[in-house]
Design a protein around this nucleic acid. Structure first.
Lengths: 224, 224
DNA sequence: AGGTTCCTGACAATAAGCTGAAAATATAAT
DNA sequence: ATTATATTTTCAGCTTATTGTCAGGAACCT
């Protein structure tokens, strides 16, 4: 998915960019409206992440312009807590969702996923990995038709693998996915959760790559 | 199908009108209550799309008037995110469905299709979840044939689940559904209402997914 | 062997959820 | 306007599942 990020705050922009890139999407990051318009005129984007307070004007005007042009590209607004009226205007102007700063990156991921699913006209997608069937909106996993209950953390871990099937994920990557920035983990938590997932989903679903990390989904040397 | 669109926002109105027309329905678009009443008095409509904030009054009053007159014409309310209390009133006043702005056009199409299907043969659309029978127009719920009375908030909560059967909804999603923008809730209100719904509808209707949210409507032909 | 790295059962601390009941609002009735 | 009634919100105590950590052992590599 190709995403345009319009955000003038340096630090935040970087973090978001990294996060999105990590999830395998292509990001273009611009810091003002005029650049955003330039990008939009040359490239098709599947999603727009739009800050409202920008150096050369309000994001709302950009949004209105886009909608007026008949573009249906989904838009998620990023806004500070004290800009409620702006937010409402933004929604009225045709945004699809909003996020109040500061937000968790996981929250951002979830919204992006939700918007893109809706946009793709596929509101109830399922993922199949081996004998597992995973319903992403219902958060239901069945193994050979039998429903398996996962705890929040277990699901979060599984999610990391679902998002990048067949990719080798290091323990620190997985930690980043599970835990908020800064809240460091001291013990072998990831190993423990890998173990718990294996117990619930079946031994063969998760492959250990010694010294490197873990991988799910494709057992053989990989085709896509 | 003949549809009356009551919406005073120029841009949005145009978009909706186009969309509906694209789908082969006849649309009349008016921008205030008085014009709406004029149209309703001369023409039969199969569906009413009703914005709540209108220049010459609240759409709710119009809706009440219609229902009082015994008209069963299905009504879908279009409402902004900061008018949720209005929305609850609207549902109490006899709306069939609502859409929170901004909405996907595909969402709109789906609702329209759903409403027209519901009304295709039977004048009184009902939803069945487990042993519950839910009358969408009258907001009456029967459990094993016994009528259950819900308060506005209880209904609003239930509604969130009805709209997305089987979907896992987080507490914050449910809060978003129940409460207006900015009016933050900082107690365990959702839990309390979940508890009340369970008491009224039966223990098994709502499933807790610890750490993630709640889910309704999976009592079906289950695998164990 | 000896040194890693990983697995997994057990456990205490914690966070999440449930629910009765009081306090605060809103709504209706007189 | 006052009173009565119903609903909504908050609070606090309780119950229980989840979490992070540890420790001993297994698997792996050179």
């Amino acid at each position: 998915m190709r995403i345009l990020l319009v955000e003038d705050t340096e630090g935040l922009g970087e973090v978001i960019q990294d996060q999105i890139a990590d999830e395998g999407h292509a990001v273009d990051w611009v810091k003002c409206i005029s650049n955003a318009e330039a990008s939009l005129s040359t490239t098709h984007y599947d999603l727009l992440l739009l800050d409202l307070m920008l150096p050369d004007g309000s994001g709302i005007d950009l949004l209105k312009k886009i909608r007026k042009a008949g573009e249906a590209t989904p838009v998620i607004i990023l806004t500070a807590r004290d800009q409620i009226s702006d937010r409402i205007n933004g929604l009225n102007a045709g945004a699809d969702d909003y996020l109040v700063k500061p937000f968790d990156l996981s929250e951002l991921s979830a919204r992006i996923a939700a918007v893109s699913r809706r946009y793709a006209g596929n509101p109830n997608p399922k993922v199949y990995i081996g004998t597992l069937e995973i319903d992403l909106t219902k958060h239901i996993i069945s193994r050979d038709g039998v429903v398996v209950n996962l705890t929040a953390r277990e699901w979060a871990l599984l999610e990391a693998f679902i998002q990048r099937p067949g990719t080798l994920l290091s323990k620190s990557q997985l930690e980043d996915h599970l835990y908020a920035f800064g809240s460091e983990i001291e013990s072998n938590t990831i190993e423990v959760y890998i173990s718990r997932l294996r117990k619930k989903l079946g031994k063969d679903q998760l492959e250990t790559v010694r010294g490197m990390g873990y991988r799910m989904g494709l057992s053989g040397p990989g085709s896509t």
